[in-house]
Structure formats: C-alpha cells, structure tokens
Amino acid sequence: MELQNQLKVLAEKVIKLKEKIDTEESTKHAFVLPFINVLGYDTFNPTEVVPEFTADLGLKKGEKVDYAIFQNGVPIIIIECKNWKEKLNAHNSQLFRYFHTTKTRFALLTNGIEYQFFTDLESTNKMDEKPFLEFDITQLKENVVNEIAKFHKTNFNVDEIVDNASSLKYTKEIKKLIGEELQAPSYDFVRLFASRIYTGRLTEKVMGEFTDLVSKAFTQTISEKVNDRLNSALHKEAEKQQEEDKEPEKLSKVKTTEEEMDAYRIVVAILRRKLSVDRIVHRDTQSYFGILLDDNNRKPLCRLHLNGGNKYLGTFDQHKEETRHPIETVDDIYQFEDLLLKAVDYYED
C-alpha cells in the first residue's frame, strides 16, 4: 500500500510538471530519479545508484548509460532515459549495445512517464527486443504495482523476477493478439470457427459472412460476461446493504465522539465550496466515521479513523480506493483540502 501511495504521488507530480519540463536532463531529475527513490534505492549513494555508468563496448571505451542501480557491488538494472516528449523505441536504444557488456539481467528504458523493462528471455545475455513489463506511471493498475514492487530494494530477487518475466511477456503478447482479433478478426481466426461449424465449402462469400458473425459473437460474449459480473457485484452490494439495515441495534452501540463531530465540521467547511451542507452526511460505524455524499454509501467523500492509537484521514480516488493519511489533530485535515475537493468531482463531473 505504501508503494502504491508513493507511485500515486509521483504520478500526480508528473502530470502537474511535465509541461514545464523541456530537456532530457530535467526529465531525469524531476521524474526518473524520484521513481528510483520510490523503489527504495538511494540516489545520493554513488555505490547504489551510479549516474553516467561506464559500459565499455569492445574497442569503444567510455560508453555510458544514464544510470545503473547496484546491489552488493554488481549492477542489477541499467537505465536509459529520454525526454518525456520522446516516444520510446528500444531498437534505437543504447541498451541493446550495453546489455551484454554488464552482468545485469534487467534494463529499463523510460521517458519518465512510460517505463519499459527488458531482460534476456530469448537469448542469454542478449536483451530481448520486446519488454516483459511496460506501463504508463499516470495510469497504473494494481496488478502492475505488484510487478513494480518486485524491483523494490527490499524485494529484489533476480531469479524470481526472471521466472515471472516470461509469463508476463507472453501473456501480454497473447492479450494484444486477442484484442486485435476482436477488433478485426483475421482470416485464420475466422476459419478456426467456421471450419468447426459450417459443413459446406468455405468460399470467400461464406468467410465474409463468418467474419461478421465471429466479431458479433465475441462482442456479445464479452458484453454478457461483463453484465454478469456487474449484476453479481450489485447483488452482493444489495445484500450487504440489507444486512446493515437489519442491524440497527448494532449501530446504536456506536458512540460518536466530540472529536469526530469537530472533524466533520471541518470537512463540511471545506466541501461547502462545492456542495450544499445538507448533501454532506456523516455516518458513524464501529470501524470508522464516514462522510458521504447524499447519504449514499457508494459515494464516500472521506473517512475518519480517530478512535485508535493513531489518527488517520482516509481520502478516496476515482476508483473509490481509500488512502490513509496520518494526522495529529483534526486541524490537520485542512492540509488535505485539495484531495477532499477532488473527491467531490468524481461524483459531480
């Protein structure tokens, strides 16, 4: 969770600052070095993160890569950086030339927004042409964060990452092919189904008809699967709500403290710039003090965790995932004004 929060903060920084960044050097300092820090490596320790790492190539001496991350005196990741405005192109990358001259198994090509991790799955000590992991830091998904975590200093294990890299790489390629086939079914893909269903001769006309049928069938299948998932989720949510409604006596045991009400008033003072007061409703539970939009538990604005040893303010992103922020007193809530106001936008836009 801590890594995910740090990556979110970095992503927000990238979005906010990128238009003010003009050079590759600025990209390195503003975006790439903070990413290396997030992975737990000390960018101020020259034995851990080496800038302008020399990777001598045959007769060419003094060839350099932008950064090398070391562990136990051995380079574990070499990094090449581009200006954030540049598209990443591994074929033009110096990493191909430098990879086999070092002992590393991993190379990273990045422009501070897009990240591409490479290894040598196809030929030992020769960097693969395609990355096994790639992502846009401003559009991270939870499963990708889990993969990034494996490169963290505290988790780094070469063998485990390499073993997993093969699955990641080929699963990604398969998903890409499936996406392409769904968008525009190829002749071979259509023939796979037509030959199992149609008993006559597969003429050009028949194949044309089956192309439309295959495309339509896949679209309908995916739509039905999505609807089934949504209906299942809504059904579970309804059951949960019914259970909550059946337990008024349990809720009555909850005692709202004056500190929670003080915090609620602060949140109201912040949010009334965008909402009328009657739409900002509190609901106290045994686990937390919730503040909702329109008294709808599907529209959480924030949560207050004030009854334990440590106090936290919980804010929500567009996916309704909670991030807890430590606070000393309820007055610290004012420091998170922007996040609270942003939560309103998720429901009102």
Rank of each mutant, 00 (worst) to 15 (best):
K20G: 12
K20S: 14
K20H: 12
I21G: 03
I21T: 12
I21Y: 04
D22W: 06
D22K: 15
D22Q: 14
T23E: 02
T23M: 04
T23L: 03
E24Q: 09
E24T: 12
E24V: 12
E25D: 13
E25R: 13
S26I: 08
S26H: 10
S26V: 07
S26A: 15
T27L: 10
T27V: 09
T27G: 07
T27E: 07
K28D: 07
K28R: 14
K28N: 11
K28A: 11
H29K: 14
H29G: 00
H29A: 13
H29S: 13
H29N: 15
H29F: 14
A30S: 13
A30T: 14
A30E: 15
F31Q: 07
F31C: 07
F31H: 05
V32N: 06
V32H: 08
V32R: 05
L33R: 12
L33S: 08
P34G: 06
F35L: 02
F35R: 04
F35N: 01
F35D: 00
I36E: 04
I36F: 04
N37G: 14
N37A: 06
N37E: 15
N37L: 03
N37V: 01
N37C: 08
V38C: 10
V38Q: 10
L39G: 06
L39Y: 11
L39R: 08
L39H: 07
L39P: 05
G40L: 06
G40N: 09
Y41F: 15
Y41H: 08
D42A: 12
D42I: 05
D42C: 04
T43H: 07
T43D: 01
T43G: 02
F44Y: 14
F44S: 12
N45D: 15
N45T: 11
P46Q: 01
P46Y: 09
P46K: 06
P46S: 02
T47V: 06
E48Q: 11
E48P: 00
E48M: 04
V49Q: 01
V49D: 02
V49N: 03
V49C: 03
V49R: 01
V50E: 04
V50C: 08
P51K: 06
E52L: 01
E52D: 13
E52S: 07
F53V: 02
F53L: 01
F53G: 00
T54Q: 11
T54G: 00
T54S: 10
T54N: 03
T54W: 00
A55T: 15
A55N: 03
A55R: 03
A55E: 04
A55L: 07
D56G: 04
D56K: 07
D56R: 04
L57W: 10
G58W: 00
G58L: 04
G58I: 00
G58V: 00
L59F: 13
L59C: 02
L59Q: 13
L59S: 13
K60T: 14
K60Q: 13
K60I: 15
K61L: 14
K61D: 06
K61V: 09
K61A: 12
K61P: 00
